[in-house]
Structure formats: structure tokens, C-alpha cells
Write a protein that binds this DNA or RNA. Structure first.
Lengths: 336, 336
DNA sequence: CTGAAAGCGCTTACAG
DNA sequence: CTGAAAGCGCTTACAG
């Protein structure tokens, strides 16, 4: 194991000097160019990598960032994977290690949290939607000096922590507008949280079309089965509709599949949109028109915000802008 | 920030004693029960958590495990997510931090590897299938004293490192047998690596049925489009077939969807099986019969093996046993 | 131009 | 029964 001291001994200088040359932080020091070169050369030859534990210990850091992740998105959407992927690779580039914990519910989360966590990490990034009580625990940490950044949280339970996520309302608005522009006039809306309807309504308003509240159908979750169930209810109701705005790709896939199965037809399906632009969207019988959830950008923003905060800045929450991705589910072009 | 020294000062004892009481490693020491209780009580009150950096530094460890992950499985299968999820939560329970790096190709991987990595981690878990050269780099690390454990590697490029993965041949065998038992007699096989055919052939042999080599169709990858493409070729060939064993849920979904689209029929599809038992399998128009890839078990085995190795044991590679999960794609029960 | 010393928060022989 | 001391591998005033 190659250390500063080892290199110093080899070259007959002090480890102090080696440290300064390698870190580039010379302080009041001015080294002769020749020893500088000698040190750098030897360090490179030995692929010297400073022991980050020792560095962090000395500098009063932990060298560790806590990444607490709730499932984001519906199964098959790969959103959690994408988030962890981007975030962990970024933290790695900053030289920080990870305390990575996946939690499924409030109990898991509470198990992960204790005041002593400040002895373990330099900051916390929490992804996913916890209960309001969790938010207040996190806010306490933050106030006590442990920087906390959130991502994909439900804005109203945030307790003033910086949060990054896609603009949900705009997602619904983009999808709704698109379907209205395709000629739909009686759109159903599968939604999970009532708040999500703002975008659906806004799109109607902007185009001067009046939506029919009897076509608002509340879903339990964002999953495939939830889409099937909503579709079941919609078809059973007998109410006329000519398109559907759903809250996730999983829901849209479930809804479409139920329709195919009940009607036995592979054409003239109701125009429909998903959310997330996940792998689900491209592996449906009919590829799904969807809106992005900007997961990579969210991860990047959250990590940057954490380092900003550690550097003394006050990062601001942000809503990222979704993009519409048009595929056959809404255009009904014929099969190849 | 609460430290040993802080507690020691409060109680008027040495930090040495506090350390021994809290760690439970008393050595030659024998403490009075009353001071022991006092120390434990105060530590609990303050939620004292020892600084793991300092512990690791002292004990000559890094307190960090490298987790290098290639994508496992097809997009939408969530296998990478599952693997990272289980592995990271386990490592966390052992108190180790993570150096988590996702790599997409050989270049990424090489960027992540340097001899100096021994200064950063106590061990390496590598998931996914790298090139043979990567395997030999890893084997070098292992020989030089950095324990390396593999998961989901292609066995022939392993260079004697312990590896954990599901038994691919048995996966194909289970699926093939199941289809033969459903009455199929002319099975097509969509396969990626030639080696995977062993199970397909074994199943035929065990049931005394002769397969037709003109129904072996090689796929580029495990993805949805690959399944579509293989199905395209199969249908174009005009050769008779009555069932399909594919190499992934993505392939199976793609193949089925192409069939529905080309025939316009929603019944009498060719009986078909996938692999991975992923979310894709349950969000198809027809739920897919599949075989599990035992990702959780693989992750657990890999992590356990790493700790075994660090404890001086010699962990042995293992092939985990897949399970068949029967759904409609192979039974063709009617739609609800 | 360079080095000795102190210290980050622990652990573990060693000494009393 | 308990503590002083040394040391893990670094960094950073401070002194020459």
C-alpha cells in the first residue's frame, strides 16, 4: 500500500512536502522544480492514490454522502435505476463514497434515520415521496447542519428543503394539449393525486375546450394493474370518451391492453398517453406517446445542489421541464 | 459531533475505556459494572455513532466496497436496480460504504480501474459481463490481495474468480420442457449466445423429442427489438413452428407483439416463454410465462462471498436454481 | 526552499 | 479496575 510517507522516504524528503506537492496546496511553500517533478513522477509511477479516509478525517469531513431512495416510478420504468446510476457516478467523480439505502416504507425510512447519522455522512440526498413526518425529520437534520437535498418529493410535504423534480402539471398539460390537437374532444383523465389535474385543466382552458368531470377517474397507484382497473371502470361506465391522459406509462400500457382484450380489436383504440417515457413506452403492443420525467437531470440537479449547499450557497428548488415524445398510441398510424 | 473523547470527558474517564466498553472488545480489561453502565447510558442518550473513518483507518481497512455494475438484463427488467438494491442494503448493514460505479462499456470500465484502487476499497463486486481482458485485470487485483467477486459473468471469461449467477442452461431447460409438456413439438429457439442452447437440447432429449435446427434463430441482444426481429425472420421463413423459447422477457414481448400486429389476431398466438420474470412479463398484452433469474439471491451470495473471502475463506462459484413461473403466454387460457 | 509537530477520532498493546 | 502512549495516513499552521 503506497503512502505519502513511503514516497517521501524513497526520495529522501518529508511526507509534508510530498503531501503539498501532490495536493497542489502549497500554502506558504515554494518547492524547487526538480523535487516537485521527482515527487510527481514517482507518485504517478506507483499510481499513488491518497487514502481518502485519512484525508477526510483530517479535514473534518466524512467523505460519504447518504443516498436514501424510495422507489421512483412504476415497476419496469427503470427510473430508480436511472436516478441511482447518475447520482452515484457523479458522487464518485467528486471522490465521495455512498451510504446507499433503499427504503420501501415509513418503517424502513425510520430505521435508517437517527440523530447520529451526522457522524456518518456529509450530506443527504433523499429521492422519492416520504410521509410528511419524514420530511420534518429531514428538515431537523438540515437545520442542525447536515445538508439535505430532496428529489421527486411531493412539494407540499417538503418543509422548505430544496427539491428537484419534473413539473407534473406541465407533464399533464403537454399530453392533454397533444391529444386535443389530435382532435380528441372527450378526454378521460386517470390521475393519482388530485393536484395533478391542474395541467389537464390548463390545456383545456388554453384551447377553449370544456372537459367533462365524469371522465376523471382516480387511480390507486401508477402501476399496470391500476391502468387496467381504471380502464375497466371507464368502459363499464358507458360514458363516451375519445382519448385518455394517464399518469404513467404503466397505467397507459394496462389501459390499452385491457381495451384490446375486451374489444378483441387491434385498431381504433382510444388515443392515449403515458408519463415517464420509460422502456415500457417502447415495448407495448402499440408504442406509447409519453412525456419525459427528466430523471437524469433531476439526479444531476440534486447532486449539484448538495455540493452548492456544502459550499455555503442556498440552493433553490426547481421544477424541470418535461418533453413530449410522440408515438403511435396517440397518432394511430397503421401498423407497419 | 459526539466523540469518544467527549463522552470520556463528561464522565471523567479515559477515552480508551469508553472505546473498549462501546466496542465490547475488552481485551485484558475488566471494568466496574457501574462505569460500564454509565458509559453505555450516555452513549445511547447522545446516539453516539463512532466515526467509521477513524475506525477503519486505525484498523487498516478502507470501510468501502467497490460495486461496479454493468447493465444486467434488458431495459424494463429492473434487474440492475434489484441487484444494486439488495447489495447496497446488505453492505450498509455491515457498515461498509460504497464506491458505486455503473459502466456501459470497456472504456468506462477501464477508466474505473487502476492499480491504486487498492488504496480505496477493501474489495470489489463486479456485476455484468465484461470482456475477457477485464476479467484478467480483475484477476490481477485479486491475486495482489484485493478480493474480487463476480456476478452475472459469462463463465468462460472468468479467470477463476468466484462468480454467482443463475443456471442459464437450466433456465432454457425448464422453459423448453414446459412448452413440450403443453404439447409443442416444433419449438423455435431465440438465443443470444450459442452456449445457451444446452438446456433447450437437454429438455428435448429428456422427453425424447427431436428439435429442428432450422428453428434456431440467433438474436443480437436481449431487447424488445431483438425479439421482434427474430420473430420477423421466423415468420418470413415460412417454416412451421408451434412455440418459441426466447432468451429474455423483452424478446418474448417483442416477438408476441410482432405476431399480433402481423396477424391482426388476438388469439391462437404461438406459445412462448421469456426469461427473468421481470415486470415486463406481467405488463404484456398476454402475461408471459418466464423463468426467474434469481437476482436477489445472486446479490446476496456475492456480498456474502466477499465477506467470506475477507475472512480468509475461499468462496466457491455457484449457479443458482431458476424457477418456472407459468402465465398465459404458454397456456393460452382465454382472456377474462 | 524544506521539515518537525500537532492533530483528526479511533484501537490496542502495555503499564500500573 | 483504569489510563497514557503510540499509531493509522493524511493536512496545515508554524518555524527555520
Amino acid at each position: 500500500m503506497v503512502t505519502l510517507k513511503g514516497i517521501a522516504k524513497e526520495l529522501g524528503v518529508s511526507h509534508t512536502l510530498v503531501s503539498r506537492v501532490i495536493s497542489g496546496r502549497m500554502g506558504t511553500t515554494r518547492v524547487s522544480e526538480s523535487t516537485r517533478q521527482a515527487i510527481l513522477k514517482r507518485a504517478k509511477e506507483l499510481d499513488f492514490q491518497p487514502n481518502r479516509l485519512a484525508m477526510a478525517l483530517q479535514e473534518g469531513r466524512k467523505g460519504v454522502v447518504g443516498l436514501f431512495l424510495h422507489r421512483i416510478g412504476t415497476p419496469g420504468s427503470e427510473m430508480s435505476h436511472l436516478f441511482a446510476n447518475i447520482a452515484s457516478n457523479m458522487l464518485d467523480e467528486y471522490g465521495d463514497r455512498l451510504m446507499l439505502r433503499y427504503f420501501r416504507n415509513k418503517d424502513d425510512f425510520e430505521k435508517f434515520c437517527s440523530p447520529g447519522i451526522k457522524n456518518q455522512v456529509d450530506g443527504l440526498i433523499v429521492g422519492g415521496v416520504p410521509h410528511p413526518e419524514m420530511a420534518s425529520i429531514l428538515a431537523d437534520y438540515d437545520r442542525s447542519g447536515l445538508p439535505v437535498i430532496c428529489a421527486f418529493h411531493n412539494v407540499d410535504i417538503l418543509a422548505n428543503l430544496p427539491n428537484f423534480q419534473v413539473d407534473h402539471s406541465m407533464q399533464a398539460c403537454l399530453a392533454t394539449k397533444h391529444l386535443l390537437e389530435q382532435g380528441c374532444r372527450r378526454l378521460a383523465h386517470f390521475y393519482v393525486m388530485p393536484g395533478r389535474q391542474a395541467g389537464f385543466l390548463q390545456a383545456h382552458e388554453e384551447l377553449g375546450i370544456t372537459p367533462d368531470p365524469s371522465l376523471y377517474i382516480q387511480a390507486k397507484q401508477y402501476h399496470y394493474e391500476d391502468g387496467r382497473e381504471c380502464m375497466q371502470r371507464l368502459m363499464d361506465s358507458g360514458i363516451q370518451y375519445d382519448g385518455i391522459v394517464t399518469d404513467s406509462d404503466g397505467q397507459a400500457a394496462g389501459a390499452l391492453n385491457l381495451w384490446f382484450q375486451r374489444t378483441g380489436r387491434l385498431s381504433d383504440w382510444p388515443r392515449i398517453t403515458g408519463v415517464d417515457n420509460s422502456p415500457i413506452a417502447t415495448s407495448c403492443l402499440v408504442p406509447l406517446t409519453s412525456v419525459t420525467s427528466e430523471v437524469e437531470e433531476t439526479a444531476r440537479a440534486a447532486v449539484m445542489a448538495l455540493y452548492d449547499k456544502r459550499a455555503g450557497k442556498e440552493p433553490q428548488s426547481a421544477l424541470l421541464t418535461p418533453k413530449l415524445v410522440v408515438r403511435e398510441s396517440s397518432t394511430r398510424s397503421q401498423f407497419d
